[in-house]
Design a protein around this nucleic acid. Structure first.
Length: 365
DNA sequence: TCTGGGGTCCTAGGACCC
DNA sequence: TCTGGGGTCCTAGGACCC
């Protein structure tokens, strides 16, 4: 049997996707070493009788079928002995900053932060696995946190590769092995395909990644439009951009939302709640030197119907003016209908303008 | 007594204009 | 009296991610 020739070593550019392993739970265990080995669930204010969801569960808790996004109340029922902790943004931000600083300190690394616990790292190297291992070691030494690394020739392949490296591992996905590894898997495993889109694809007879990669253009475009239709097929192929963009992230707006522990109905309660949210948003607006160009209101009626109202406004930073316009949106809320969530948003940049910028977008892949 | 909070981006369809 | 076709802007809402 002859050896399969390895592809010639390529200097890249390579995309590495770095993802911390159960980041939030890991940070909590570092602060509370006595929790090591125990089922730890972090979510909401740490009170399982409240309306909240799980942010992260430790591997010990996951054994019981608990995962992020699950209602805290149900998670607590599944794991009676779990240690349930409140979400502590400051602690995770601090840990995240250390991790990202460590990544930026790697030789030749271009770092694009995706969230608290993950980032793309662009690098030119002949040995991406070696680079990934050194990176994991550096993060561990600096922060005592473990991470997994996906290596790819595109952003999409690197991102998907990480899942195969977990925990604490490294995995490479390129045009060479993409379909071999991903081809038979359901489309929902792709980054950017969720439950709704995977179901709509299934109605077109497309269930696996290979089927999506080889799908005809017309039905996809008919179902999802010219942009998204072709974009989904590209996703199925793992193709797309390989450009890691380290342009600092600039938020498009500021928003606050809150879920009421008890549904509210009374008009006065709705207005009080809206004013409170608005005041918080306006404090963030005041700290931003850009004017407001749009407003949004989100209302979730009970049991679970979400409506949104938006309004484009002439550039302004005037508090009273913004309040007046926002209250026009509040007036659209249906009376006498129980409300479980209210959210308010101030846009500083309209979506069209944002697309002009160099901040990476989904269509930019 | 299921289903958070902070985001980003995309599309359909109506209004309006020429 | 009837009413094309193309374009742009705006709102509502869908979908996805961490």
């Amino acid at each position: 049997m002859s050896a399969i020739p390895l592809p010639a070593p390529a200097a890249g550019p390579w995309v590495l996707h770095v993802d911390l392993d159960q980041f939030i739970a890991a940070v909590e265990v570092l602060r509370h070493p006595e929790l090591a080995g125990k089922p730890v669930i972090v979510g909401g204010r740490g009170d399982p009788t409240e309306r909240a969801v799980v942010s992260t569960a430790s591997y010990e808790a996951r054994e019981f079928g608990v995962g992020s996004g699950m209602p805290l109340r149900i998670a607590a029922r599944k794991v009676p002995d779990a240690v349930i902790l409140p979400v502590d943004h400051q602690a995770y931000n601090a840990a995240s900053d250390q991790v990202m600083a460590t990544l930026r300190a790697q030789p030749g690394a271009v770092v694009q932060v995706l969230g608290w616990d993950e980032a793309f790292v662009g690098v030119e190297t002949d040995d991406p696995e070696g680079y990934a291992r050194r990176l994991q070691q550096a993060v561990l030494e600096r922060t005592r946190l473990h991470c997994s690394v996906g290596i790819g020739d595109t952003l999409v392949r690197a991102k998907v590769a990480t899942g195969f490296g977990k925990p604490r591992g490294v995995f490479r996905l390129t045009a060479e092995n993409w379909l071999e590894v991903m081809g038979e898997r359901p489309t929902i495993e792709l980054w950017g395909v969720g439950s709704k889109v995977s179901k709509r694809l299934a109605l077109l007879g497309i269930r696996t990644v290979t089927e999506l990669a080889h799908a005809d253009e017309a039905p996809l475009v008919g179902e999802f439009g010219p942009n998204m239709g072709l974009w989904y097929r590209q996703l199925g192929r793992g193709d797309g951009s390989s450009l890691v963009d380290d342009t600092p992230w600039v938020p498009r707006g500021h928003s606050k939302e809150t879920t009421f522990q008890q549904n509210i109905v009374e008009r006065a309660d709705v207005e009080t709640a809206a004013r409170s949210l608005l005041d918080q948003v306006l404090d963030e607006v005041a700290a931003d030197d850009r004017p407001v160009v749009g407003l949004g209101l989100k209302v979730r009626y009970a049991p679970f119907l979400t409506k949104t109202f938006t309004k484009k406004i002439a550039q302004t930073s005037d508090r009273d003016e913004i309040v007046a316009k926002a209250m026009e949106l509040v007036a659209k809320i249906e009376p006498d209908r129980p409300i479980r969530l209210l959210g308010l948003r101030a846009e500083m940049v309209m979506p069209d303008d944002a697309r002009e910028g160099h901040t990476p977008t989904r269509s930019g892949w």
